[in-house]
Design a protein around this nucleic acid. Structure first.
Lengths: 223, 223
DNA sequence: ACAATAGTGTCTGTGAGACAGTATTGT
DNA sequence: ACAATACTGTCTCACAGACACTATTGT
């Protein structure tokens, strides 16, 4: 998450094929190495990022996806708040964050990988506290809602989201601190709870909306 | 599906390691071969089954999962109605269907693979017409419900299931034929519709049940 | 007649979505 | 005073789940 937008981490390729083009960071696995260790190592080598929680996502093996031969790629997913700044590494000329909307076109079949992964995250946000990974350690309900809105690319009703999020047991732990500095009432800060699945789930809107358009009511209350 | 129960296809290993033990069918990929072709070939060699629709499921690469070395396994999933009888092939001493409940213990980490895959199928049944793959070409609503009950390991209300399944556009196409032979009214036969996702989804019961136990009302109507 | 199955209808509780109103802050 | 934000409450519609009833078959 960077400035209320979902970004992905890209590197600019130093070598052929696709030299100079943008791609997802990655590389080969060594013989003695577990897959997740290889992913972690490549991430660090190419972007300097450490300590990210990597979750296995999928595998891509269509013949011809890599002009060098029959390359099988295992993809990994990590969600980070906006604190990290990537630094280019050995195999990469440069590294940067790019809004996921504007990422295409990428090298290899990485557009497809990004598309699949985004859809995966969208679904997982409903049943896991994964969105918390995209917030700083202590966050407000509004900041959490901003994450959901960015990933789902929708507008959510502020009040209904608030009510539903707090109803889920083990999702959010309230602290005794508040976010101040901006205009408005001070917003309580929350941390991630101990639940690893959300019951009930926090479902994204599915119907086109029964009564009216999904327009937030901007007008104030009657005096 | 065999006799209202969800079964998985197992082979008995002919060679070490785990010689004589039951395992999922599988084998190595050749250099020129796409992954799905390798899976299809191994399935046919070891069990004689052809023409199954294989979907990629996951990848398993934990070091030590195979005593022969660092083996990375890509797993594939196919759902079949109960017409097929496996025949043992080259690398397998025998092949059989086994109820998924009674499958453990299997060779390697195949118990874990089975567990993950079952959970995956359980979720997919809510959003895809995948359950139809476990029925014969023309099936009754009751037969379809039996599939859902077997996979989810629950009892579903006959009438509510009926109503909800038929409400989903593109899920089921009614034929003009009926299933007869057993007692009771003739049941209309259906075929799979053209939808590839279910809107609205056919969700499995999540709450413990608000009013009473999930007991079907066995008693007949009042005269 | 009776049991078993298929199909339809009704009722109720829960929850999502829409929206009003109040409280607290900075400008 | 006013704008912006946080929080609470109410209303309505949709639907899941529970269950009653009718229709059609075989024994």
């Amino acid at each position: 998450m960077r400035s209320d937008d979902l970004n992905i981490l890209l590197v600019q390729r130093r070598k052929a094929p696709f030299k100079g083009q943008w791609a997802l960071p990655g590389g080969g696995v060594k013989r003695t190495e577990d897959l997740v260790d290889a992913a972690r190592r490549e991430l660090q080598e190419e972007t300097g990022i450490r300590h990210a929680q990597l979750d296995q996502r999928g595998i891509y093996a269509t013949p011809g996806r890599d002009p060098r031969g029959h390359v099988i790629s295992v993809t990994w997913l990590a969600l980070l708040p906006d604190l990290t700044l990537p630094t280019a590494g050995s195999d990469a000329k440069a590294a940067c964050w790019r809004p996921v909307r504007d990422a295409a076109p990428l090298a290899f079949d990485h557009d497809e990988i990004v598309r699949d992964s985004l859809e995966h995250v969208r679904g997982r946000l409903e049943h896991t506290p994964m969105a918390v990974d995209l917030c700083v350690v202590e966050f407000t309900i509004t900041e959490l809602r901003t994450v959901y809105e960015a990933v789902w690319n929708t507008q959510l009703d502020r009040r209904n989201f608030h009510r539903r999020a707090l109803r889920i047991p083990g999702f959010l732990d309230r602290t005794d601190r508040y976010r101040i500095g901006s205009t408005g009432a001070p917003a309580p800060l929350y941390t991630r709870g101990n639940a690893d699945t959300l019951h009930p789930p926090l479902l994204r809107p599915r119907r086109p909306s029964p009564r009216s358009n999904p327009t937030p009511d901007g007008q104030g209350p009657k005096p």
